[in-house]
């Protein structure tokens, strides 16, 4: 189907890292069912390294592919590298997304940041709040 690149289709048809982590170090969920996409990211962090990552996504093909690609891009990386992951990098790694689907890559970035924020808060690690999206008021769904 010409709507999506081959990379998007590959990650949609064979998503990597689907599932949950029972004793996750951090969990982030963004989006809502009303808008038609929810992404949930589970991180297992040891010594500032993302040892494991899983996701669950309710959404369109590009939302599932963006989750899959984003989890691949942070697996084994440091939390600082994960923090630096941008939606643009996710979209580029997917060989591009249609303009009206770019918000799916934004959701992937936000889901990872939300999971990292959860990790910082659970472990009382100080963090720069300005680096995190304000999902409650972002306007995408509200």
């Amino acid at each position: 189907m010409a709507l999506y690149s081959e990379v998007v289709m590959d990650h949609f048809m064979n998503p990597r890292n689907v599932g949950t982590i029972e004793d996750a170090s951090g969990v982030g969920e963004v989006g809502n069912a009303k808008c038609g996409d929810i992404m949930k990211i589970y991180l297992k962090i040891e010594n500032d390294i993302i040892e494991d990552v899983k996701f669950e996504t309710f959404g369109c093909g590009s939302a599932i592919a963006s989750s899959s690609m984003a989890t691949e891009m942070i697996k084994g990386k440091s939390i600082h590298e994960a923090m630096a992951l941008t939606n643009k990098a996710v979209a580029e790694a997917l060989d591009g997304l249609p303009a009206h689907k770019l918000h799916c890559s934004v959701l992937a970035e936000e889901a990872i940041k939300s999971a990292l924020k959860d990790y910082y808060e659970k472990n009382n690690i100080p963090y720069d709040k300005s680096q995190f999206p304000d999902c409650e008021n972002c306007g995408h769904c509200h």
Partner: peptide, 28 residues
């Protein structure tokens, strides 16, 4: 579940169908 991903997978499995999901309507 969401309709667009349903349609994509059905298409892959040989079934051409349609949905009224936001992602297929081009709006939120």
């Amino acid at each position: 579940i969401e309709g667009e991903s349903l349609l994509l997978l059905l298409d892959y499995k040989g079934v051409a169908a349609s949905s009224g999901s936001a992602c297929t309507s081009g709006s939120l």
